[in-house]
Amino acid sequence: MSMPIPTDDDKDELLLSCRYGDLEDIKQFVEKFGSHSLNDIRDENGNCVLHMVCGNGHTECLDYLIDKVSPTLLSIQNNAKSTPLHWAALNSHLPIVQKLVQFPKGPGVDLIDVKNTAGRTPLGEAENVGWEEGANWMVGVMNLVEGNSKEEEDQVVDNPADIEVEIQDAEGQVAKMKIESVFL
């Protein structure tokens, strides 16, 4: 027996339930229409169910939905190219940010590097709203070494004065720092 197909009203109700954190209504939708139907539902701005729960900090709803939706939904971009992680960072929801980045079947730390139409990553959104806790957490888990092979990463440096570090912020500005030897 196949599941019924949700109407536009059913889809709108689901998005509202996700927005307001009504877990029981979300569960009823999944029981009636199946979890597969969650993947294709968007509002007029391209937001999916994860945008709604993540942007509003509904951890219990995310816990329920994250295993029911396609892992590709974690990196889906709305019309402004923002992902659910952008929304969670913009609204300072650390448990949501952590769950999205640490979800084993998802894109992981690569989510932190996705830019929206404003040119900001989720880290940039956190910095833009002054959310230090979230920005620090994301910097702590992200891949800061780009393009280096495993051999280059494992090199032992005899003279630390030869090390120069480059860090790029959310606006694309690059800061360079030279590590100087303290051993004489």
Rank of each mutant, 00 (worst) to 15 (best):
E146I: 09
V139A: 12
L90Q: 05
I76D: 07
E153I: 15
L94M: 14
E13C: 14
P6T: 08
F103C: 10
F33E: 00
R42A: 06
N91D: 04
N78T: 08
G106D: 15
G124E: 00
G124T: 01
C48W: 00
P104V: 01
L38E: 08
V165W: 04
C18S: 02
S75W: 08
K176S: 07
T7Y: 06
S149D: 02
L74F: 04
D63V: 09
E132A: 09
L23Y: 01
N148P: 06
S149H: 01
L73S: 08
E31Q: 03
A135W: 12
V165A: 07
I96R: 12
V101H: 04
G46W: 03
N39E: 01
I26Q: 10
K150H: 05
A89E: 03
E152Q: 12
S149W: 02
A118H: 05
L50Q: 15
K68V: 00
D67C: 10
V30H: 06
I96Q: 14
D22M: 07
K178W: 09
G21W: 06
D10E: 15
P6S: 04
N78V: 09
R19I: 02
E151I: 10
C18E: 04
G57L: 06
Q102G: 14
P6R: 07
D63I: 13
N148E: 15
E153Q: 13
A88E: 08
